[in-house]
């Protein structure tokens, strides 16, 4: 009885050890695979780098782990599928209009196309604007929150950014005056220029593209 308990404990211990090794190996293998595909590259500038690499430790363990709280503070990008949009807040054209005239019109014009800086709204000149050139509506939120207004970047609240986004979409005749812009509605908006976009396919060689 005792013997079998001890032996089963031993077996359990061994199993645990083996499974640990396995997970570790599996993790390293998977990672290795991901990196291998890009490591097989050689050019004149990295002569000898492969040999030098062989002398490096497998882990550097530098820096400190970033916790979720820290990441959340800096992780501000907003993507076409809506990832990154604040759950709270909903923008209206009316509130956006007020904010626009206070904080944006001096650079972009009362109607969004008089300048002196970038035209945001399409006019007869055919210059690039949100309405005729921007492929994703989420980019408006991302950019305004990131970099605007020029004289006080990063000073707008998420609610204000939602409002301004709504107003700019309205000025470009993409949404109606009564529509609201939030985490649900913004990613669904189809921008007129979206269908014109193609990914670069230049590859070098004799072809001029």
């Amino acid at each position: 009885m005792q013997v079998s308990t001890i032996s089963s404990l031993c077996l359990f211990g061994q199993l645990l050890l083996v499974s640990c090794c396995f997970t570790r190996c599996a993790f390293e293998k998977d990672e290795q695979r991901a990196m291998d595909s890009v490591d097989v590259y050689h050019s004149s500038w990295d002569d000898g780098l492969e040999n030098y690499r062989k002398t490096w430790p497998s882990r550097f363990r530098l820096g400190k782990l970033a916790d979720q709280q820290f990441i959340a503070k800096w992780d501000i990008d907003v993507r076409p599928d809506g990832k990154g949009l604040p759950k709270e807040g909903s923008g209206t054209v009316k509130a956006g209009s007020k904010l626009y005239h206070q904080k944006c019109a001096s650079c972009h014009g009362i109607n969004g196309y008089e300048g002196p800086y970038d035209k945001l709204v399409t006019d007869s000149t055919g210059k690039n604007t949100i309405g005729n050139y921007w492929p994703y509506a989420t980019t408006i939120f991302d950019y305004v929150r990131r970099a605007m207004p020029f004289n006080a970047p990063g000073s707008l609240s998420d609610q204000e950014v939602y409002d301004i986004t709504a107003y700019l979409l309205y000025l470009n005749k993409i949404i109606e005056a009564n529509e609201v812009i939030n985490a649900k509605t913004l990613p669904k908006i189809e921008m007129p220029a979206r269908k014109r976009y193609v990914i670069d396919d230049r590859k070098g060689g004799p072809e001029i593209k």
Partner: peptide, 23 residues
Amino acid sequence: VMTREETSKYTEKIKDGKIRMFS
């Protein structure tokens, strides 16, 4: 992410009315 710099800027109009991105 489709930031402003890879959509409204640093893209170019090419033939057939297309706009090329990630050039």
